[in-house]
């Protein structure tokens, strides 16, 4: 498969490294999947409240999305389904490379929307998840412990 879609690594992991990194990948995937499915199952869910309560220098962008019916509608589709796709990809280790980047983009947007200037709000759980997923981009595992491994050149 095209190297754009497949992860590769130059370093051989020890078994323990592989177990921990895979566990981390599955855990983050699990979280995404849960958040996405919960939103998708809840018909009344909307990103509006989350966007509206944004209170930082990026707020105008998020407030404008919340006030625009079309943009809000798109956000309300991309959010749950995006999270579900990222979740499946991470748990199963499939198409990990591009989808991890998509996950990073989602988390970056959540962070920009939600952070505010307080000790507890600058570093919030979203930022930690963002950085952790970033780490998983640098230390991929799906080519060993994921469905991506079946597409790998042998």
């Amino acid at each position: 498969m095209n190297p754009l879609f497949l992860e590769s690594r130059t370093k051989v992991y020890s078994n323990l490294e592989l177990i921990v990194l895979t566990g981390l990948r599955i855990a983050i995937g699990w979280h995404f999947l849960h958040e996405g499915l919960e939103k998708a199952f809840q018909q009344s869910w909307s990103a509006k409240a989350f966007l509206e309560q944004s209170n930082n220098m990026f707020s105008p962008l998020f407030h404008s999305i919340s006030e625009n019916d079309i943009l809000l509608g798109i956000t309300n589709i991309i959010n749950p389904w995006g999270q579900i796709i990222v979740g499946f990809s991470l748990v199963l280790g499939i198409l990990s490379k591009p989808i991890k980047h998509f996950g990073l983009l989602l988390l970056l947007l959540y962070y920009l929307c939600s952070f505010s200037l307080g000790t507890a709000q600058i570093v919030n759980p979203i930022l930690i998840e963002l950085l952790t997923l970033g780490m998983l981009v640098l230390f991929p595992t799906s080519n060993k412990t994921g469905l991506d491994s079946f597409f790998e050149k042998t």
Binding site: H31, F32, E35, A49, F50, Q53, N55, Q83, L106, L107, Y110, C113, S114, S116, G118, A120, Q121, N124, P125, I126, E129
Partner: peptide, 17 residues
């Protein structure tokens, strides 16, 4: 309801209202 339910991926800490 919104006070409890503002949520991105992990819920927001700040709540203006």
């Amino acid at each position: 309801f919104e006070v409890e339910k503002v949520d991105g991926i992990s819920g927001a800490t700040a709540n203006y209202y």
